[in-house]
Structures are given as C-alpha cells and as structure tokens.
Simulated assay, not measured.
Amino acid sequence: LEAFLKVKCTNFCSILKITDQSNQNITCNIFREKLEDHPKIFQIGDIVRMHRVKAQVFKDTISLVNAFGFSVVTFDGTVGGAVEPRTSSSYFHFDQEDRQRVEELRSWASSQALLPPVSASIPLSAVQPRSYFDLTCQVLAKAPIDSTCILLRVWDGTRCPHPLLKVVVEPNVTEGPSSFSREKENLIANILVYDNHVDCARQLKVRTHQQT
C-alpha cells in the first residue's frame, strides 16, 4: 500500500502497487466514499483479488482504476497462513480454485524475495525516514482524532534524530497525561493509527504513573 488519502472531499483514494508472476509492476488507484470499501491491507505482501477494474494508459504507462460495481477481497500473503477473505462485501464468490490461486501467489512471492525481511525491533534513535520497522515502546497517552484515527503518544527512552509529527488534541479527550515536561516531550513520538487498526489501538493500556 503506497498511499491512502482523502480526495475531492467525498472519496478516499487508495494507491496500490501490485505484481504477479508476470513480473509487471502496476499501480492501481481505488476511489471509494467509505473506508470499509477499500482493500483491507495489513502489510506489504498481502494478496488482493479485485472485481471490476479497468486499465488506462498515461504516458505509455498502464494503471488500473476501479469501475462501477467494484469490489475487492484481500488475503494474508504469508506462506502457511490461514486463507481467510477480508472484505466488506456482503456477497462474494470464493472457491477451491481461488484458494489455490492464493497459495500459488504466496509460494511465488516467497521464492522471489519480494517481501521485506522480518527485522528486529529498533529504537526511535535508529529510525530512518520512509522506512518500515518494528518498534517496541511504551504508550504514555492516547486520544481519538476521529472515528477512523487514533493518536498514540509513545517513547522508548531514546530520541529520534529526525523531526517528528506534531499533533494537537483537546486535553479532555486524552487518556493519560495531556502534557509532559519539555525534556520528556523531546523523547515522545506521536503515532497516528488508522482504519482497521484503530480497534486494536483502543485496547492498548496507557501507563498509570508518570516518570519524571
């Protein structure tokens, strides 16, 4: 999943980069008014099956865009993982042939080393811009931004060397301290959690005592 943004004040746009055994990389732009109608992608390497997309050419490059009647089903791309469809569609067809196709794509992707390697957790002090990483940290406070987004304020005792996102929320909606000492603020990272991950983030526990 390359990007996810709101456009024209009515639709959200998902921008996917997809490939298969043809080794062709194609961009797919999906415009839908409701977030739940977008692909439920949890990580790079997930598999998508899209119904009713059309191809278009711009500057000699082919891309895909959703058409009327569009629907999408997503699967975990991990070899050996459960083949469980993720979709908001009320009706969709999924048979043994589809299951076999998912398994074929999983095996092919793993043999091509397309998926990022599983990396050990790194501290905030080692974070690099525009990179994927695992972070083990402590939640100091959290606050809802809207129904599709929640803010987590976290730290791990190290300082990120790069500028961090600044987010302002009302103190009365914050669970945990609404402010910290200047010294501690320099060590805190603001993380915005979106969409299908919000429910999980809501269940995270905020530390109950403040460290000076």
Rank of each mutant, 00 (worst) to 15 (best):
F70M: 05
S110F: 14
A109Y: 08
S107T: 08
T61F: 00
V118Y: 09
A141Y: 07
F94W: 11
T78F: 08
D76R: 04
Q96F: 12
L135Y: 07
P116A: 11
P123I: 01
V118P: 02
A126L: 01
S89I: 10
G80P: 00
V65H: 01
I62T: 04
G80T: 10
Y91V: 13
S107Q: 15
S111L: 15
T61D: 02
C137I: 02
A126W: 02
V139M: 07
V65Y: 00
S63A: 03
S90Q: 14
V79E: 15
Q96E: 14
E104N: 12
F94I: 09
E84Y: 13
E84R: 12
L64G: 01
R106W: 04
A113T: 05
S110K: 12
Y91H: 14
V73W: 02
A82I: 15
S147P: 01
Q138F: 11
T148S: 11
S111Y: 06
V79D: 11
A120G: 12
C149T: 15
L64C: 01
T87A: 07
L124Y: 02
A82M: 13
D134Y: 10
S88R: 02
T136Y: 06
E104F: 09
I150K: 05
Q112N: 13
A141R: 07
G77K: 06
A141K: 05
F75V: 09
